[in-house]
Structures are given as C-alpha cells and as structure tokens.
Design a protein around this nucleic acid. Structure first.
Length: 945
RNA sequence: GCCUUGGUGGCGGAAUUGGUAGACGCGCUGGAUUCAAAAUCCAGUUCUUUCGAGAGUGUGGGUUCGAUUCCCACCCAAGGUACCA
C-alpha cells in the first residue's frame, strides 16, 4: 500500500471538477466568506514556483472556512489585457487574443494540477467582451458624474446641469479644473451647446485634457508614473520623454481625502497603507499671493501680473521670507523678468532644459539659480522681495513657486548662502549660523503679530491674518495627480466614445460592448496615431448604432471613434465585484448578489500593487458606492501581501582562461569566473551532476572538472528567480516528482507568508516523507485499516494540541508553523503506534486544507462517500490537555540549569521545599544562601543568589 | 535624507501575555538494513570546554528575580519614497 500521489491527485482533481465541489451559491443560510487572489496576467512563460505561494495560502484559508461552516466564494480569473501579448503580436503578427487564449490554457492546466478549490464557473477575463462591456459601462458612468464637495460624493452630471440652469455655478462646490470661470444662470442659457459641453467637461469624473505625459517613443505609448523606474520604462528599459497629448483623465484627486480616510477602516499591512498615504501626499498649509512690484518706469506692471501664488506648509515663517523662487518653467517668468536680466534668465532656462529630469533629480547638491530683476511685495511688511528662478523648485508640485524662508528650510538656506541673500532669523533662541531650523518647536520672533507664539499657534494666526487681508487662505495640497486613462495600445478596452465636432460623445450603454476592431498591424500608425488608427472599420453610425467603415465618416451621421484604449488598471479595478455574479448579461452584477457577498473578506497578493491597482480599485469602488451601484465603499476588509519567493542560484567556477572547472571549496585565491549553472543539475549537498552540466551547452562538453573529496561542489547565492539566472523552478516538475500536496506543504513550510524567502528544492524531501509517514498511519499489515478502539489519553492529547495549534495558526496566517505541528503530530502518533479511527479521521480533516488530495483519499478509504470538503472541522476540547505534573525549569539568576517533574497540586511553599532539597540545587549554590526564590506555580522556579 | 519591515545555528526558520532559546525540516556525522543503490529506520548535531561547566538571539546601555520579547542609543540589510516647499 504505497502512497501513489500522482494517481490520487489526478483522481480527486477530476472528482472536484465533475462534482463542482467548490461551486459557491449566491444564497445560503451559511455565513458568507469571500477569499480572493490577485488574478494573474497570463504570461507566456507560465507559472514558476513563486507564483502559487499566495494562491496556496488563500486556498488553505478558503478550504478551512468551508470546514468551519461558511459559504465560501473563492474565484479565479485572468487580467488578460496587457503589453506582452501585444509586443508578441507586433513581432509575429499573431492576434493577441490567440496568444492570450493559449497562455490561459497553460495557466489553467498548471493551476488545476496544484489542486486549488476555485469556483471556475465564475471565471472572468478582462479581455472578454462580455466582461469589458461593463468596464466600458463604468467609464460612461464616470463621464456622467461629477464630485459634489458639499455632500462629499459623486452625483449625476444632470444634477449639475439643473443647478447651472437655476443659479449658474457661483454656489457650486465641486471638484473641477482650476480654470473654471464663474457664470450665472443667464450666462448658462446663452452658452452654445459646445460651450456648455466644454464647461461640463471640467467637472466630469473622467475628462479629456491636454496633459503632459510620459511618452515612450520606443514602445509608442504613454506610461503611468508607476510604469517608469529611474526615468526609463519598467518594461524594456527604454527612455521616456515628456510630451503634451490629449488624453482621458480620471479625477481621482476628488477622492484624495476619502482614500486617506478609508485606510483607517481596513485591515491592510502598514507598509502598504504608508505607501498609499505617501503617494497621496497630503500637506496642510496656506496659499499666499505675493503681488509683483512694478519695475522702474513700468506703470502697467500690475496689469499684466495678478501676483504669484505660492503654497507653504509654514505660513508661520512668513516674516522670514527674504526671496522667492520660481521654477524655470513657471509661466510668469517671461512676464516679470526685467530687460536687464532677460538674457541671463533665458540662458539659465536653456541650461536647465538641457538637463534631463533624471539628472536634475540625481544632482541635488549643485545649487543654481538666476535673479529675474523683479521684486514681489511682502503681504504683511510691504518690503520688496527679490524674485529668483531656480531648478530646485519643481514646476509640477504646488504652484511651481515658493516663498523662500532660508532660516526655516535647508534648500532655501543653501540657496541664500550660495547667492549671498539675507537670512533673517525669526526663531527665538535658535542658532541658524550653520543650518536652517526646520522643526516646529521654536517660538516665533521678529514677526510682528506672530511674536511669542509657538509654531503651531502661529500657523493658525498667520492663516487668519492672510484671510483677513485677502492675500491668502488655508489650503490643503495633495501630491496625487489625476490619473491619465488613455493608452496608445491595441490590446486593451476600447473607449465607448466617438467624436462630434471634436467633442467626445458617449455611445449609448445599450449598444455595448464596443468590441476591439481588427487591424493589419499592432504598431502605431506612421502619422503617430495609436494602433486602432490602423483599423479600417472603426467609425460610428448614429442612425444604425453600428460600427461602420471609416470611408463613411461624414461628421453628420457617421463619426470617428476614439483610437486610444484603456490602461491595464481599468479591468482590474472592479473585477472583484464581477465574481459575485460573473455571468450576468444585464448588469455588472445583480443587486442581490452584491448585497449578499458585499466585499472581499481576505485579499492576498503582492505589495508591488500598492500605488497602482490597489489605489485605483479603491477609487472606483468609492465611485460605484457613491452612485449606489455597490453596497460598500471599501472592497477588501483584509489584505495580506505574500512575500516573494527568491531563487537559490548555483555557481560553478571556471579557472580564468581555461576550460577547467574547480569545485567551490578549492577556489581560495585563484582567479576564477563564476558561471550560473542550472539548479536542476545540483543535489541537496550542492554537488553538481557533471554529465548533465556537460551536455547542457556545447562549450562545456570537453571541460575538465577538479573535484574535492570525490565530488564537484557548487556555491549558492540567493537572487530573484529569473530565466537568465537558471534558478527558475517549475511547479510542473515538482508535482510530477513529489506531488501537489508536497508542493503546497513545502511552499507553506518555507517560512512566514509575508516574508521574502529563498526556494531550495533540496529541502522538499522533508515534507514529502512527512506525507508518506502520514499515509502509513492508516496502514496495517500492508492493508488500509484502522481500529475502532478507544484512544489513549496521550493520543487524544496529540490530536487536540494539534487542533488548537492549527486553529490559532490559520487565524494568524502562520501557515508554516501548522505544517511543523502536523509533523510533530504524525511523529508522535507513529511513536504511539496509533491506528485508531477516533484519532486518524479528525487528523485527515485537519490536514485537508493543506494537503487536500491525500486527505480526500484517506477520507474515502475511511468509508465516506462524500468529499472531505463537506466535513466539519474537528473541535478542540481543552480537557484533553489537562496535566497533573509539570516539568519545571529550575533556573539560577535567570539561567535554566536543570528540570524537575513536580505535581501541579503542590503549593508554592512545597515546590520551594522540593527544589531546595534537590542535590543539583545544593551543587549549584555551592554553600551560598539564596537571596530570594521565585516560584511561579505551573511555570518556573528561579533562585537568586 | 525620510517612512516601513527585519537582523536568532552551516541553511529555511520556531519561541501566544517577559518565564526551559534553537521546535519542525534541510544539510552534516555515525550506525542498522541492502550484493549494491534508492527508500526506510535509529542516534547525534549552537559555540567554547580542562567534560566540572561556561557563553550565546546585530552592537552598547537600561528596566526586571528573569529579556529573542519592553525602553534608549547606534550599526547593518531589504522594500517604498523624495529638491513635495
């Protein structure tokens, strides 16, 4: 009766699939539990052992919750739009849909073979028109909405139109573009339809705007900030430049505060919350407008410049202002610069423009700047303030201008020192002769009405005074920008948009989905249009509501369609809602399904999505909530980031200039070249399979190998798992050799779920032989058989302490320690020669979330004809752990020296008497009298002295 | 620089509220079984040691009868982020 894992695993995978064991129902008397994984992008390379880590953890959790009586939703799908399929299409001409389909098939096979309890009847694919129909639908809802700041929620744009008709926009408090002008009801009536549309566009939650974007010429597309690493594209490492383009944007900034507040209501990892908080970058302070002083002889100066607006977090330091600095790109620079300084300013701007964004960021130490000749007027003192330009001020943050307070800001201080500008000290008893004082702990002085106030009070007072005089006001500034939503790609969701007189029009939702058109080529067109510009049938006929041939475009009835597609995060921002009712063709999900499942109870995925997917998805969820489309405004109550599994690379050493390899222990100080060897050639003792290595590449065929102690050893190093490092381990091979249950257990056994940890196949034999030992417990005389005898106290103790441990571990997501406790249990039961049903049946259930195939087989052999998934989880009974004696550690000055078995009934005094009489105590004390004896009954004895 | 997380044997890692540091597994050493190998089983395995014992959880201090755990300072590593005004 051997443990034939391959047969067992195949058998049960088929059973689950045929019986739809894990299909979740949308109505049930059981409490609901929704366990979600971040769905994968189906790449051509398939899965390596690092990918399923999170899926195994969530699967254990889902199976455990089923045993505990929950109606569990545990779905899976594919984030199947994306760049790699498109790049492949560009190279081979193969339609991305085809590549994607093939990749999905590989993924599905690999996932099935690991034995996940996914409800595949709810599978979603973002690239499926039946799915992206609803992505397009949500886009239209965003277009038809604005953000009302009074009610702090999104509302229909028609509400806004009603308001405009009644009273114009003077009383409207809504998130909008900065350049909205005020108008009255009469004005609104007078505006042409086009003018009205242009105004509404400034309020819509998605809008077209001329934005400066990160354009990657090599990829022919716009990249989001998080797709750029160190100034080059994350994919491919191509250079990225700034370029102005008309793009769809999402007004995520309207939700900045709610995205911050919501973090307090969800159980997500602190580092992840911190990076979202950072990304949103809220800073509180004031905006202050500095009037510009008329240049000598220029009587009209004030007419062409209203003033320079700055944002500061320290309005309390306003009396310390001794100059202002504008970003070189600031639009006022040209207007205010005096004749005398024109040339110098132009030269400076030219010089900074030459330096790339990257250089500017890397080189923080060099101080540069240029005086413009112009002066601003201090709003309180009326003194002239010289206006400089300098590239330490960034055009993209705040207003692109700062009021410089050298005594309170190190950058201003350095700038002032460098250009010999005055550094007035406005802090009482603070020495600023060497550096600025940036803390908020000083008392303000030399500052008129702020004198004697501590910083925090001074900030409030300063804002009050600014507002009184109408030169500024309290303001909250966010680093978060509106999100660019257009991509110049083929393999993404098309926008449901056509253009009439240059104005975007939404296609009526009843004509969705707008499916991707066929194109000849997947590259941008020669005149720089996105790939959809290659489509010949991509025009909208308003009479028939059909996509028609471009030749029919007449701008009266037939109009051109949008050529951009949506970004990768569109489809992933709401998929968790779709799983609740994945096959609904009339709604994104039915009200009843949404109200039943509500939100994700446990979401597991990588931390790399902190400021991308996880921020956008929260934004969309809040929007959908505002519009009454979903019942909760945070989609995931709890989130866990699984750590990355790293590879353990193997290195062989080649003597420099020779085709001779030397075992790693013999290298010493010889000149060698380390070469990655494929990890599959190396065994648990780091010995290389020389024959396999020789056959690997022709250049090694004739190589010579210098062994140590009869073997050739490699050295190991932990690196990221990657093809080029030959340290990738394929789960298919592991399942073939050891089985899926072994893979699942080993991935959990490696270490804490959230921690990054190296994979080393060598250790897998430990968990594999554990499963074999487990199997053997159920075998007697080579037959499957268990006895119905009453279990002993010891056997019950082993079982129940394991139940308790596993319950606690799963509650803490500490899956690695439950694997250890299973091993301990099986070791103990083996030693006890336990073959009893009363122990072994609950044990099978206990292990089934972790190793479901072997558990099903044992369950079946124990005489059950239903799946073990339906079994109730064993219940811990503390009475099985009650002891009568305790092995006391006897310590001296806190150091344990020996142990003593004593009855738990003994009093403190009795314990002390017994311990003091013990020969080892006498020996330890060596004649000294103890100063003190600490006795904690049931725990420890500590003798001091 | 700032924020976050972490630092324990040769390796992955254990140690609920401060109470026997190194569970469990790998590797290693020795043994049994075998013609041999695989597989399996048994014993040992933190370091030092004069074999009595002593030291030991990044470093240095502190609190405590007792600290991997709490406090202070510092060092190192990983991840995030940045002339953010």
């Amino acid at each position: 009766m051997k443990y034939y894992f391959n047969e067992i695993e195949k058998k049960w995978q088929n059973f689950w699939s045929e019986n739809q064991t894990f299909k979740a129902e949308n109505n049930s008397n059981k409490p609901k539990f929704y366990v979600l994984d971040m769905f994968p992008y189906p790449s051509g390379a398939g899965l390596h052992v690092g990918h399923p880590l999170g899926y195994i953890a969530s699967d254990i959790y889902a199976r455990y919750k089923r045993h505990k009586g929950f109606n569990v939703l545990h779905p899976q799908g594919y984030d199947s739009f994306g760049l790699p399929a498109e790049q492949y299409a560009i190279q081979t001409g193969q339609h991305p849909a085809k590549t994607t389909e093939e990749n999905i098939r590989t993924y599905r096979r690999q996932l099935d073979q690991i034995g996940f309890s996914f409800d595949w009847s709810r599978e979603v694919r973002t690239s499926d028109p039946q799915y992206y129909k609803w992505t397009q639908w949500i886009f239209i809802q965003l277009f038809e909405s604005f953000y009302c700041k009074k009610d702090n929620k999104a509302k229909p744009i028609s509400d806004l139109v009603t308001l405009f008709e009644k009273e114009g926009n003077t009383n409207v408090d809504a998130a909008c573009d900065d350049d909205v002008i005020e108008f009255l009801a009469e004005d609104w009536q007078r505006f042409t339809d086009t003018e009205q549309q242009e105004i509404l566009a400034k309020y819509r939650l998605t809008y077209l705007s001329e934005t400066e974007v990160n354009w990657c010429p090599k990829l022919g597309t716009v990249l989001a900030n998080d797709e750029i690493v160190n100034g080059v594209s994350e994919r491919g490492g191509y250079p990225v430049v700034r370029k102005k383009m008309k793009q769809w944007s999402m007004r995520i900034t309207a939700y900045a505060q709610r995205l911050l507040d919501g973090l307090n209501t969800i159980d997500w990892p602190q580092p992840l919350k911190d990076s979202q908080i950072n990304w949103i970058g809220k800073s509180e302070g004031a905006s202050v407008t500095f009037k510009v002083m008329a240049a000598e002889g220029d009587v009209h100066a004030e007419e062409h410049v209203d003033g320079i607006e700055v944002f500061t977090t320290r309005p309390d330091t306003i009396f310390g202002v001794s100059f202002m600095t504008l970003a070189p790109e600031h639009e006022l620079v040209a207007k205010i610069t005096t004749e005398e300084y024109k040339e110098a300013v132009l030269n400076y701007i030219e010089a900074t423009a030459k330096r790339s964004e990257r250089e500017r960021m890397a080189d923080v130490k060099t101080i540069s700047g240029q005086f413009t000749g112009a002066y601003a007027i201090h709003p309180f003192t009326g003194k002239p303030i010289p206006i400089w330009i300098g590239d330490y001020v960034l055009a993209g943050y705040g207003t692109g201008a700062v009021m410089a307070v050298p005594c309170g800001d190190q950058r201003d201080y350095d700038f002032a020192k460098h250009f010999d500008i005055d550094i007035p000290n406005i802090f009482q008893d603070i020495d600023i002769s060497n550096e600025a004082y940036a803390d908020k702990n000083a008392v303000i002085s030399n500052s008129d009405f702020l004198n004697g106030l501590p910083a925090k009070k001074a900030i409030k007072r300063a804002i009050f005074e600014l507002e009184q005089r109408g030169v500024g006001k309290g303001k909250i500034n966010y680093r978060l920008r509106d999100a660019v939503f257009s991509r110049q790609r083929y393999w993404g969701e098309p926008f449901p948009v056509y253009y009439k007189n240059g104005l975007p029009q939404m296609i009526n939702v009843k004509h969705l989905p707008m499916t991707l058109p066929e194109v000849e080529k997947y590259l941008p067109t020669e005149d720089g249009k996105p790939p959809l510009g290659n489509a010949t049938v991509w025009a909208w006929d308003c009479r028939t509501n059909n996509v028609v041939d471009n030749d029919l475009i007449d701008h009266e009835n037939v109009f051109p369609l949008e050529l951009n597609t949506m970004p990768g995060w569109a489809g992933s921002s709401w998929y968790f809602n779709r799983y609740m009712d994945a096959n609904n063709s009339t709604e994104l999900a039915s009200k009843s399904a949404l109200n039943y499942w509500r939100d994700v109870d446990l979401y597991i995925g990588g931390s790399e999505h902190a400021t991308g997917h996880l921020l956008y998805a929260r934004f969309w969820q809040k929007f959908l909530y505002d519009r009454g489309l979903v019942p909760v405004d945070e989609f995931a109550k709890k989130l866990i980031n699984q750590g990355m599994i790293l590879g353990t690379s193997a290195f062989v050493y080649r003597l420099e200039g020779e085709n001779k390899f030397i075992s790693s222990g013999l290298v010493n100080s010889q000149k060698v070249q380390p070469i990655h060897a494929d990890v599959s050639f190396v065994n648990a003792s780091n010995e290389l399979d020389i024959e396999a290595f020789k056959n690997w590449r022709p250049e090694f065929k004739e190589a010579e190998f210098i062994k140590e102690e009869g073997a050739f050893k490699v050295s190991r190093e932990v690196e990221k798992m990657s093809k080029s490092k030959y340290n990738v381990v394929n789960p298919d091979d592991i399942c073939e050799t050891y089985g899926a249950d072994t893979l699942r257990l080993y991935e959990m056994f490696l270490g804490p779920l959230e921690q990054a940890k190296p994979w080393n196949t060598a250790g897998i034999t430990g968990v594999h032989s554990f499963l074999k030992k487990l199997w053997k417990l159920y075998i007697k005389n080579d037959e499957f058989s268990v006895s119905d005898e009453v279990p002993t106290k010891e056997e019950l103790k082993t079982l129940h302490k394991t139940i308790k441990k596993v319950d606690d571990d799963i509650a803490n997501f500490s899956f690695n320690t439950s694997v250890s406790s299973f091993m301990i249990a099986v070791n103990e039961l083996t030693a006890q020669k336990c073959n009893k049903r009363a122990i072994l049946e609950p044990l099978a259930v206990l292990i089934s979330p972790y190793a479901p195939h072997i558990a099903e087989e044992l369950w079946c052999k124990l005489g059950h004809d239903n799946s073990i998934a339906t079994a109730e989880f064993p219940v811990f009974d503390p009475k099985n752990l009650i002891e009568s004696t305790k092995t006391y550690p006897i310590s001296f000055n806190g150091k344990m020296r020996f142990t003593m078995d004593l009855s738990l009934d003994l009093s403190k005094e009795d314990i002390e008497k017994e311990v003091m009489a013990h020969e080892k105590t006498i020996q330890q004390l060596d004649g000294r009298a103890p100063k003190k004896v600490i006795v904690i009954p049931g725990k420890i004895v500590n003798i001091v002295g």
